[in-house]
Design a protein around this nucleic acid. Structure first.
Lengths: 189, 189
DNA sequence: ATGAAAATGTGATCTACATCACAATGCGCT
DNA sequence: AGCGCATTGTGATGTAGATCACATTTTCAT
């Protein structure tokens, strides 16, 4: 399927845009391809863009002072990712984004998003709902983090995204669950 | 200050509404008063409203199967709270909300919010930004949860909201930090 | 003011998970 | 095909924080 069509169907789930409106909407995006391992946002960068994944798998992550990595999100097709804090506030990135597999994305600058939201009421509606879903998901994950042990969180993740098991090295799954790779490896006993 | 004025100034930080638009906006809210200890949303309820705090302090929380409580948010004046997942999806509440102190709120139904967002583009803009801030804050807290130990998280919280120390029993602070009250109590050694 | 209930402090013990060390296995690259 | 590096498994040991038990202090309603 064409990038334009993928985005169109994704947006149509939430917002109603006329063909002309969607042409305008889509025209602000830039198609980009990345190779496995390539960095899209590095900590310290200025962040100008957010990314809509067409194919492949990205990760957004934080690295602490001890060089330990924590994964915020595995971004699969039709997911959005960026360092949203940096993107909206203008601060430098503290979250990095890179490619777990080869990937194709549609990228949108902060200015373009805000212009679209101004020009097209339904675009603002779309982005409100998108963020809403992210917010609710983030709160659920926070609760799961506080409430459940590693085994439970692992099974939850695998039930929700079984495809991750194939694509993503286990140490990255550990970094998502907030656990050491050794402990994750011992879970099967 | 009047409720209307408090909300007006809060909204003005993000969105530009004409006086007539704001009159319409404000007219959808209902002023409600609650006593300390009173429940606003109980787990299992249908959730029809979200709440803008004028005075006092609410908490939103989850209680697990072992009856252990986890606090998602202390809602202070000008904060918004509800079980947003239930509110948007129509599912029953899994998050409860009650009053840590006597409180005054402005409440808004889901239908009224959506109507306002349809009628007033800038209202949709406002709610997009509000949710956005919540999303970014939630991600930061998730990272802090994974990255930092209890002592660090406690100091972070006290630095950001020193007033909580006076208002909120320590066991509730423990429930926010995701730690037992005993461990929190031992932090001062 | 006073008694009951709630909140807090503190010791002893237990446990999930981290960390370190190293072996085994898998996998991309020329 | 085979070298080299990244990934995974697994044992031994360490530790932050949980849990249980009970004493002490604070708060609140009458």
């Amino acid at each position: 399927m064409q990038p334009k069509q993928i985005l169109r169907e994704h947006v149509a789930k939430i917002a109603t845009l006329t063909d002309e409106e969607f042409d305008n909407f889509f025209s602000r995006f830039e198609l980009q391809s990345f190779k496995k391992g390539q960095t899209i946002i590095a900590a310290g960068d200025s962040v100008r863009r957010e990314y809509f994944v067409l194919s492949g798998c990205l990760k957004s992550f934080y690295i602490n002072d001890d060089l330990k990595m924590f994964i915020l999100q595995f971004a699969m097709p039709t997911w959005w990712t960026s360092d949203f804090n940096a993107l909206y506030s203008g601060e430098k990135a503290t979250i990095s984004v890179d490619c777990i597999t080869d990937a194709e994305v549609l990228s949108l600058t902060n200015e373009s998003r805000e212009a679209l939201c101004r020009e097209i009421h339904q675009a603002e509606h779309f982005f409100r709902w998108r963020t809403n879903k992210g917010y609710v998901a983030s709160q659920k994950r926070l609760l799961s983090m506080m409430n459940n042990d590693v085994k439970h969180r692992y099974e939850e993740l695998m039930a929700q995204y079984p495809e991750l098991y194939q694509i993503v090295p286990k140490q990255l799954i550990a970094a998502y669950l907030g656990v050491s790779r050794e402990t994750l490896s011992r879970l099967h006993h």
